[in-house]
Simulated scan of single mutants.
Amino acid sequence: MKQLRIDTPKVFLGLMVFVMLLPLIATFMNSVASEWSGTVLPSGLTGQYYASVLADPRFHAALLRSVAVAAVALALATAIIVPAVVAAHIYWPALDRWMARLVILPYAIPAIVLMVGYLRIFSAPPLQIGGTPLVLVLTYVPLCFPMFYIGVKNSLRSLDIADMLNAGRLLGASDLAILRRVVLPCILPGVTIAIVLNFAGLISEFVYAKMLVGGNFETLQMYMFAQRSLSGRISSVIVVLYFMLILAITLIAFWLLTKTERRP
């Protein structure tokens, strides 16, 4: 008789995946349930809540605002932080050690303390931009630093930068050309992961948006907060749509990355 063998790692992996997906599955079921009380599964299904949210111009505007602010902040953060991390890693190790210490600051300092500081800075000349989308963009850029630093730094540690630079210099190439043509493609996966993670965090951010711009600039999370008292199904629909947006952007980003890596 053949003995049944249990692949323990696969069992634990399957359980972990199930536990992680269970809240999302329950949220989706709640978003399509016409009635759900006293039973394990909904007693009926409907798509009217999706139709209601997708037809709401206020939802379209909030989603567009969130995506636009997150995209602009990520573009600025990528242009500023990635070159700074690469330069510190290669040319200024002492500065790199200080940058490693700064990674914890966005998490160690309470958000309310940071917001008070931002309000004072952006409410006085010459930066009187309080209550505008620009204040959100400038606030979000520092929040991107930890993910960018960790992603880029891990990619740089796997490269022998000194040998790359020496080989390129022997061939007559400048350091900038070496960094742009050799180092940057090698760290692109780390940068891509950092962009996706930061985008997911920025588009779901609520506290800074609520405190810094209030009702002047309604983002997706503020829209969901406003809808919470109308129906729990509406909130579930927004969460599912938010997850699908993040999933789509993640798949597109990694598809573009794979396409770039296969390019000769």
Rank of each mutant, 00 (worst) to 15 (best):
T139D: 06
W92R: 15
V82N: 02
A124D: 10
L136Q: 06
A100T: 04
D96G: 10
A75R: 02
P83R: 04
I104C: 05
V85P: 08
A111R: 02
P125H: 07
C144R: 09
P83N: 00
A84C: 12
Y91N: 14
L134S: 05
V137K: 00
G131D: 15
V137L: 02
V85L: 08
S123P: 00
P146A: 11
L119M: 13
P133V: 09
P142W: 05
L127V: 14
I80H: 07
L105V: 14
V135P: 00
F122L: 14
A75F: 11
H89K: 14
T132G: 09
L134A: 12
I80K: 08
Y91S: 13
P110W: 03
M99A: 08
P106G: 05
P133W: 03
A79G: 05
C144S: 11
P110V: 06
P125F: 14
P133H: 11
L95S: 11
A84L: 12
P125V: 07
R97P: 12
R97D: 15
L95R: 04
I109H: 12
R97T: 14
A87S: 11
P83A: 01
F145D: 01
T139H: 05
V116Q: 14
R120M: 06
V86A: 00
L114V: 09
P146D: 10
T132Y: 06
V82I: 03
P106Y: 06
P83S: 03
I121H: 07
R97K: 15
S123M: 07
A100D: 08
A100I: 09
A88Y: 01
A84H: 07
I112P: 00
Y118K: 07
V85G: 02
V86E: 00
P142H: 01
L74I: 07
I129D: 08
S123K: 07
F122D: 04
P93H: 05
P110C: 09
P93I: 11
Y107F: 15
Y91V: 04
P106M: 02
